[in-house]
Simulated scan of single mutants.
Amino acid sequence: MSLELTETVQGVVNGLSSDFSEDLIEVYNSCDHTYIRVEAENIKEILNYLKSKHHFIFLCDIIGTDRYTSDERFEVIYNIMNLRTQDRIFVKIRVEEEDPAVDSVTSVWKAAGWMEREVYDMYGVRFEGHPDLRRIYMPEDYEYYPLRKEFPLLGIPGSIELPNTTPDTE
């Protein structure tokens, strides 16, 4: 595995290798970015470690993906940045389709609240310990998750009331 990492990112990988060796699954580069996949069980501790020990203080985004596989179907990706060095890493975890849940990181970054709500609303991944986990785009009683791969491209007829698109003629 030949990786070209900056000194800061190499320090992160070395630190994770020694402090979280049981949780570190893989490290790879793609499109000039570093991806670190870890076990989901300790994501809050790992991200807190990266923030406090390696100065990755800026949470840019939390992204959900549907891998549409029978094993570890959903992926949650934390896009974090060290503002001193301008280094960016993506920390990835995977959760199962059956009862997809992971710990909330709102105690590490308050900004995670909105981002976790978006992932929950679109994919159905629950964030345990979130202070206000509710839908952000879809109605609260909506039964579906629109960014899951099995969701029909044209939506589910009758599942949500749509506005009238016929112009008023007066």
Rank of each mutant, 00 (worst) to 15 (best):
L16M: 09
L16D: 01
S18Y: 04
F20T: 01
S21N: 13
D23V: 04
V27A: 00
Y28S: 10
Y28V: 09
N29C: 10
N29T: 13
D32T: 09
D32W: 08
D32F: 11
T34L: 00
R37G: 07
V38C: 00
E39C: 13
N42Q: 03
I43E: 03
I43K: 01
K44P: 01
K44Y: 05
E45Q: 08
E45T: 03
E45I: 01
N48H: 14
L50G: 06
H54I: 05
I57K: 15
I57F: 14
F58V: 13
F58M: 13
L59R: 09
D61G: 12
D61Y: 09
I62H: 07
I62Q: 03
D66Q: 10
Y68K: 13
S70G: 04
S70N: 11
S70V: 07
R73D: 02
R73K: 10
F74Y: 15
V76Y: 04
I77V: 15
Y78R: 07
N79T: 12
N79H: 15
I80F: 03
L83R: 14
R84Q: 15
Q86S: 14
R88T: 11
R88Q: 12
R88C: 06
R94C: 12
E96L: 02
E97I: 06
D99L: 13
S104N: 05
S107T: 12
V108L: 03
W109F: 14
W114M: 10
M115D: 04
M115G: 06
E116I: 09
E118H: 09
Y120Q: 08
D121C: 10
D121G: 08
V125S: 09
V125D: 07
E128P: 00
E128Y: 09
E128I: 15
D132A: 10
L133A: 01
L133I: 01
R134A: 10
I136N: 04
I136G: 04
P139N: 04
P139A: 08
D141A: 08
Y144L: 10
Y145M: 09
L147P: 07
R148P: 00
K149I: 02
K149M: 08
E150D: 12
P152I: 07
L153P: 07
L153H: 11
L153N: 13
L153A: 13
L154T: 14
G155P: 00
I156V: 12
I156N: 03
